[in-house]
Computed example of a mutant assay.
Amino acid sequence: MKRYEDPLALVDVTLFTIREGRLSLLLATRKNRDEPYFGALALPGGVIHTDEDENAQDAASRVVRTKLGFDPPYMEQLYTFSGRLRDPRRWSLSVAYYSLVPESVLEQTQVEGLEFVPADRIPDLPFDHNEIAAMAIRRLRSKSTYSSLLTFLLPSEFTIPELHAVYEQVTGSATNIAAFRKKVLDEDMIEATGERRKGGQHRAPDLYRRKGNGLQELKRTI
């Protein structure tokens, strides 16, 4: 009976944040000399550990935790990429995820070899990571218009102008802030904390937080 080589089973994570006012993608330097593209910037990823990972989501969470130094506040499966030529080692498949992380969380990591690049200026990456990143950006922009997804890019407390700025940056659309405020409040996706942002020369703006812990889908698009 003919025997077949097992495929290489991987996970890859496209991790987004807002850095210097721009939607940015985190890339990590490949540090294993025994693996392809040593020293290159790529999406954080790794092999699924069948002895400890219950599923692909657990593997992706482990990769972020061990390679980046934190647990991702939000992560969702994107797509499965597979093929004979995507990895020089052998036939492989990668379950890709996208994750959103506030910049304040990323500032706490002590991991070296990380680099942030604007989402509209991603360099040539190894494997099929450019294709994965492009799909993740499309998903992020689309889902941002009908869910509370973008609140995961902000700290636990934020102002409506800060949320509005993130929405415009991610979606690339200019929206009236008064209409935006009405929509997000009508959808009940955020709630007031009862506090105000301190500092500044003008009237301190009200602070809000995401309502609930998980993702909320909206009745109407923003």
Results as ranks from 00 to 15, higher is better:
residue 48 I to C: 03
residue 40 A to C: 10
residue 45 G to W: 02
residue 107 E to P: 04
residue 72 P to C: 04
residue 76 E to Y: 13
residue 73 P to A: 10
residue 58 D to I: 03
residue 59 A to N: 04
residue 93 L to V: 12
residue 122 I to M: 02
residue 121 R to A: 15
residue 85 L to N: 14
residue 112 E to T: 09
residue 102 P to Q: 11
residue 49 H to I: 15
residue 53 D to F: 11
residue 76 E to S: 15
residue 92 S to P: 08
residue 38 F to T: 05
residue 84 R to P: 05
residue 66 T to F: 14
residue 100 L to K: 00
residue 81 F to T: 00
residue 66 T to R: 14
residue 63 V to L: 05
residue 91 W to L: 08
residue 110 Q to Y: 03
residue 116 F to C: 01
residue 68 L to K: 05
residue 112 E to V: 05
residue 49 H to V: 13
residue 90 R to T: 13
residue 66 T to M: 13
residue 92 S to A: 14
residue 45 G to H: 00
residue 41 L to V: 01
residue 56 A to D: 07
residue 117 V to S: 00
residue 74 Y to A: 12
residue 45 G to T: 00
residue 98 Y to H: 01
residue 34 D to G: 11
residue 57 Q to V: 03
residue 119 A to V: 00
residue 59 A to K: 05
residue 55 N to Q: 10
residue 60 A to W: 01
residue 67 K to G: 03
residue 76 E to L: 13
residue 113 G to N: 10
residue 107 E to W: 07
residue 91 W to I: 11
residue 58 D to Y: 07
residue 77 Q to V: 09
residue 53 D to M: 14
residue 49 H to Y: 15
residue 109 T to G: 09
residue 91 W to A: 10
residue 87 D to F: 00
residue 83 G to P: 07
residue 90 R to Y: 13
residue 51 D to V: 12
residue 114 L to S: 06
residue 87 D to I: 00
residue 73 P to E: 08
residue 57 Q to F: 10
residue 96 A to L: 03
residue 113 G to K: 02
residue 106 L to V: 05
residue 39 G to V: 03
residue 81 F to R: 08
residue 105 V to M: 10
residue 44 P to L: 02
residue 50 T to K: 15
residue 108 Q to M: 12
residue 42 A to G: 09
residue 88 P to E: 09
residue 45 G to S: 01
residue 88 P to F: 10
residue 114 L to P: 05
residue 60 A to G: 04
residue 51 D to K: 15
residue 103 E to R: 08
residue 59 A to Q: 00
residue 36 P to F: 01
residue 83 G to D: 11
residue 88 P to T: 08
residue 52 E to V: 15
residue 74 Y to Q: 05
residue 93 L to W: 13
residue 104 S to F: 11
residue 50 T to Y: 14
residue 103 E to K: 08
residue 70 F to N: 08
residue 59 A to Y: 03
residue 59 A to S: 10
residue 60 A to M: 05
residue 42 A to W: 06
residue 64 V to P: 06
residue 96 A to H: 07
residue 55 N to P: 06
residue 100 L to G: 02
residue 76 E to F: 14
residue 41 L to I: 00
residue 89 R to G: 12
